[in-house]
Design a protein around this nucleic acid. Sequence first.
DNA 1: CTGAAAGCGCTAACAC
DNA 2: GTGTTAGCGCTTTCAG
Lengths: 360, 360
Amino acid sequence: MVTLKDIAERVNRSVTTVSRALSGYSDVSPETISVVRETAEEMGYVPNTLAQRLQKRSTDTIGIVLPVSSQGYAEPFFSEFLAGIGETASLFGYDLLVAYAHDSNEIAIYRKLITGRRVDGFILSRTLRQDPRIEFLTSAGFPFCAFGRVEDAGDFPYIEEDGDYAMGLIAEHLVSRGHSRIACICPPQSIMFSHVRLESIKRHLKRLGITLAPDMVKIGCFTQKEGYDAAIQLLDNPRPPTAVIGFNDLIAFGAINAGKDRGLKIGKDLAVTGFDDIPMAAHYRPPLTTIRQPIRKIGGMVVELLLDYIRSENGDQAQPAVNPDEIAGQDSIPRGWMETASRQNRQLLLRPELIVREST
Amino acid sequence: MVTLKDIAERVNRSVTTVSRALSGYSDVSPETISVVRETAEEMGYVPNTLAQRLQKRSTDTIGIVLPVSSQGYAEPFFSEFLAGIGETASLFGYDLLVAYAHDSNEIAIYRKLITGRRVDGFILSRTLRQDPRIEFLTSAGFPFCAFGRVEDAGDFPYIEEDGDYAMGLIAEHLVSRGHSRIACICPPQSIMFSHVRLESIKRHLKRLGITLAPDMVKIGCFTQKEGYDAAIQLLDNPRPPTAVIGFNDLIAFGAINAGKDRGLKIGKDLAVTGFDDIPMAAHYRPPLTTIRQPIRKIGGMVVELLLDYIRSENGDQAQPAVNPDEIAGQDSIPRGWMETASRQNRQLLLRPELIVREST
DNA sequence: CTGAAAGCGCTAACAC
DNA sequence: GTGTTAGCGCTTTCAG
């Protein structure tokens, strides 16, 4: 492996000079620069990342810790999120370190990654209302950015989908279709998004003159199977719902199957909605009415927010490594969000979109 | 951040001694060891991973490069694979670096990761019959382990599911159910597993006295949508198939929907099989007959094979960092496979299992 | 414009 | 047993 020293010997210069020539310092003679660069090229020199990192005391790596119990993390939804993160990270010259933790040792993993100086910051997702990870990272003063907020609005960067707005869309949609007996199937309420969505749907229905009956709410579901079981219980109720709101698409799929098994025509006898719009949603039978989130893009934005934060902490200027235009807002993401995010507390609220299909 | 030097000053010893005490060298006095260890503990010392790695010229990191065009990588199948890799890697004290590449710059990414000395080895998946990644890594002499082999049996470690055996199971199953007009929907034939499966199914059907007609084979599909479209074409054929073999579960889901849309009763008028047994397969309507692969475990095994290889290259003994028993074969994986793998060329063939459900 | 020297934090060879 | 010296490969003062 060719090192700076090798080049230095070859061009009869010091290692220092070679280093500076390579990084294009202004105080190196043009000739030296070109000789050094050519030689480096010719010898196939590539800097040793480890050495660079040790020296500048930064890892250029962002970490994400995933639960091994893949409950809900196995969704396509999540691969997309990860892809968004990875793509954007590499755009900025950062590596993505993925670690897997059991529930029991989650904090330990974070601690290990921090103390071993293996990452410069973390991405968190699926925040809890009271999130020990966030408490830990906050108290440790270590940079992170979350997809989702916590109950007691902390002062950390995050992106949050506007669950309240989304539930408003769903409520209006269902009510406009004439439904009044409406049910919800939700993940545990300890999860922030699940809590927000449930409270929101209650509020919006109330606003529209409808009460969400307690026995119309099933809590603690993630998977299709669980969604199915919960829906069966709902449908076997003496006064069954005419509409079921699944808090994610998989749950909704389960509810659709349950409806079918009870002899109901989905979209007519029973309306079902989902959340996320995973690719399969459009191809399910019937196609699922759901809330679309630009999840890949969200992954990218979370990274930007994090890097922006890390840099500001270091007193650096926030500077996209590659082509800023490739990153900055397109499609459904508001242009200029980055500026907004930087100015305000790096806390972003994203408006998702209702996709109406045949399941309602 | 507390360093060896800090400890050294505190205990009035040299940095060297502290280092050796901490790593439990035999030539340090017991007292020194205990003083050093206690002080380290007390001061909250954690070694700087970067420094350690620079010094021992190894990154303790394994890399995996994923295509950003998530075609088929967004499947649950894949998240599971990744989880298996990550879990096992951390068990052995390795980090998992995930990079995303566009098709065009894939090799460039590998090169960059190698030359920048950012990983000690790679995991590859979804191998091609002629795989440029494998050619590159082989010629670069860089360690890797693949899930899947290539056409011209190269001399590198890999794990392969026994596609031929699996297709034999499917062929026998369908034929025993009385089918003779059978169709296949496959990913591109450039992909090794797709090629193997197609050739195998042909051979097995032939063995059972059935010819797979050319117009009964649709090639180039990954997604549910593509599977659907292909199945529609097959069913609109003047002599439509009575059984469709999807080369992955998503394709099979598409085929099921197509059958339904053509008014066929799945499992009766039309049999459909899949491959992989993603969680949803059991909950689709009807539940899907498919081939199960212990994909998470496979991810783990691929890592072990890789680490085994890396260590052997370094002349080290292969030594699981944690509890070997947690890793070694359980369930459907043959016990003692690791030994076998080490002795033979680190090339493993795994027998998948047929899960019969109502779609056939 | 260039180089010597120092140091990032750690490990290892070699004395004493 | 323990310390000195050297070095991993790079960047960054600071002299000249």
